[in-house]
Amino acid sequence: MDYVLDLGAVTRHFGPLLEGLWVTIQLTLAANAMGLVLGFAVALLVLSPVRLVRLPAVAFVEFFRCTPAIVQIVWFFYCVPMLFNLYLGSMTMGILALGLNLAAFNGEAYRAAIQAVPREQRDAAVALGLSPLQSTLHVILPTALRLAMPVLLTNGIVIFQQSALVAIVAVPDLMYEAKSLATKTYRPIETFTLVALVYFAVSFPVSQVVGWLERRRAVAMA
């Protein structure tokens, strides 16, 4: 192989890459804020005993779970403005697409965690005279949120990685800046390797935290 590595080609252009990383982080944080809040609402709707409330929420979840994220982003970016005459700027559209996707996955995480609280816990709450609301607030949710935490964090970090997809709809994130840099400098190996390392450097510590939380939970629920 006669390719000579030139790391300088990348280090000379750190500025745009850093700006891209900042956009990626903003996308991730905003999508997670949306996913954590909206996801919880989705879970409550999915768990509703009322069919009319439950079915649309289930449809929402299944739509996002059963279509590729890249299709969702492209659809959102091109179809929403045409269908609803609504265009909010590429960044906002990117956040909305990623946030809705995350809301669906987090909704499932919350739902599974709420259902995983042992029936005896609810029974004990009733036997102690707690009202349904009190039992939800003081018994079921505290346990369920702890159970959901590792999955929520994993989903959050997946969205950090998935956010690279918005590069194709011209959101100037880390991946977008990397592509333009690689094209400009003809240095794809240096650029994309560095970018991969950046994604890894952010994701890996979080996945370690998830592992730690799961080990701790295994002890706490025993």
């Binding site: 042992p118 005896e120 004990a124 036997a127 505290p142 346990t143 629920m221």
Partner: peptide
């Protein structure tokens, strides 16, 4: 009326 169960009796948090 009070009741004690077989499993998962206490609130773990």
């Amino acid at each position: 009326i009070g009741m004690v169960f077989q499993h998962y009796t206490l609130f773990p948090h």
